[in-house]
């Protein structure tokens, strides 16, 4: 068998951009962007170096957290965070169910559909933190503004996923129920609810997790909760307490993630 007749080199065919010039141009463009972007970052070496010592203190604070000194503040922050997480999730679910049903194209007339979709779009487009800024300005500092923020954010999240879910229900089952002469309410109860309920429960538990995580942030702009405590601790360079708070947040997220996983498995 003579092997000399076969080519002795092989190049993998390009996967994305077939034209050689465009390929090089693309690489050049990416490189140029990276250089420009990196150039726009002004690094004050002296400041960073002086910060390294503080960084070290933060790491040691994380490793040897101090739960005791500010315990009453931490406790208050945690209670606010947990209570506003739960109440906001419950209220959020209660409001997002009708809005979700209203935003499902296969159930509602066009005007209602458009209105509900608009509410969802507004809620999703705005960051929690920006909503919190406005609500704090309107309702004053404290967990009540945080509660409203989280409820509002929950609506955008749950109502959208619920509406998408309803739009994807099995049409044959729905048709069968409709064929029995069921009214609109009976139709929701017998055709829609059984199909979307498991996922609604799963999503609600997931949103509970997210709300807790968010509740640790919105305190930074004055909406109460553990975020406010954390903000104060960091402002005072009290890294031992900050480390303790962060560890508590991580632990609660872990526990709630585990618990919601178990609960979801049990409920389904």
């Amino acid at each position: 068998m003579s092997e000399t007749a076969y080519p002795s080199t092989w190049r993998r065919p390009p996967r994305l951009v077939k034209h050689r010039g465009w390929r090089w141009g693309l690489w050049f463009g990416v490189l140029l962007y990276l250089v420009l972007a990196a150039g726009s970052v002004e690094v004050d070496i002296a400041r960073v170096l002086s910060g390294l010592e503080r960084g070290q203190r933060f790491v040691s604070g994380f490793l040897q957290p101090d739960f005791v000194t500010r315990w009453s503040d931490i406790r208050q922050g945690l209670i606010e965070s947990l209570t506003m997480t739960l109440t906001a999730t419950v209220i959020g679910i209660l409001i997002s169910v009708p809005i979700g049903i209203g935003a499902a194209r296969n159930l509602t007339p066009a005007p209602v559909y458009l209105l509900c979709r608009a509410i969802i779009a507004v809620s999703r487009a705005l960051q929690e933190i920006i909503i919190a800024i406005f609500l704090v300005a309107m309702f004053g500092f404290g967990p009540f503004a945080g509660f409203l923020t989280l409820s509002f954010a929950t609506i955008g999240f749950l109502a959208k996923l619920l509406a998408d879910d309803i739009e994807e229900i099995d049409a044959r089952q729905a048709e069968a129920i409709r064929a029995t002469g069921a009214s609109w309410w009976q139709f929701i109860d017998y055709a829609v609810r059984p199909q979307v309920m498991p996922r609604l429960i799963g999503l609600s538990l997931y949103r509970l997790d997210i709300n807790f995580r968010e509740s640790s942030v919105i305190g930074i702009v004055g909406a109460g909760g553990i975020g406010a405590t954390l903000n104060t601790a960091i402002d005072r360079y009290d890294y031992d307490s900050a480390g303790a708070i962060l560890l508590l947040i991580i632990a609660i997220v872990l526990v709630s993630e585990y618990a919601s996983g178990m609960l979801r498995k049990y409920l389904q």
Binding site: E3, Y6, W10
Partner: peptide, 26 residues
């Protein structure tokens, strides 16, 4: 880098020819 020695590439082509897939290499 997918830069195999010439004799390996040649052998690979020969084998693809042997199993009847020479035109499917890429």
């Amino acid at each position: 880098l997918r830069r195999f020695p010439p004799e390996d590439v040649r052998r690979a082509y020969a084998l693809l020819d042997r199993v009847g897939l020479l035109q499917h290499a890429d």
